[in-house]
Amino acid sequence: MWFVSFIKTSIGKKLVMAASGFLLLSFLAIHAFGNAAIYMGSKYFQIYADFLHGFPVLVLIFGVGLLVIFIAHVGVGLLLFFEKRKTASRYEVQTRVVENTFASRTMPYTGAWIFIFLIIHVFAFNIGKPEGVQISMLVQQYFSGFFYSLFYIISFIALAIHLNHGFWSMLQTFGLNHPRYNTLISALTIAVPVIFLVIFGGIPIYFMTGGAAGY
């Protein structure tokens, strides 16, 4: 099948990374939009959550779809990671001409961190959610714990770093590289991760700092 032979190619694999990355980014955007309701108070957040779960079939379908995309992103990422290890360090003297950014160097590791985070996160708020507790209350409950909040903040920093390289890399893989837009693109590689960091990272801080007193 053409799709199989396509994803076997070097550029095909990169396109799978970019496309799945793009879809995950879209999901993040929607997720961030919903979670922003937390800043408006528990009532609004609960309305949003209830509304979302009013379509259980759609949630299931999207959930499974998301899982598939996520597995593709992680799977191909791992494949590329091991492929790279075969050719790395083949010279006696190792010199980088371009100082590669911390973000690009740590892609597999920030990725791995996000992976672990997601397992814990999904278990806490989805699969392992205690019966009868409202999600808006659960958020408050979890983020009252210092270490739990710290873990979340670190994870969002890892996500931001991952996106910093991932966003540019995705556009380059899609073939979006043009001198006229490259300044905009490099601005976005900072802006996009920062926006996510502020929205998501702000939530634990919101609860930790007491900003959520009237939640």
């Binding site: 070097s10 990169k14 492929e83 790279k84 050719t87 001409v97 371009v98 540019w168």
Partner: peptide, 9 residues
Amino acid sequence: FGYCSNEKE
């Protein structure tokens, strides 16, 4: 040959 990880070397 390998794939591209956008490192610009």
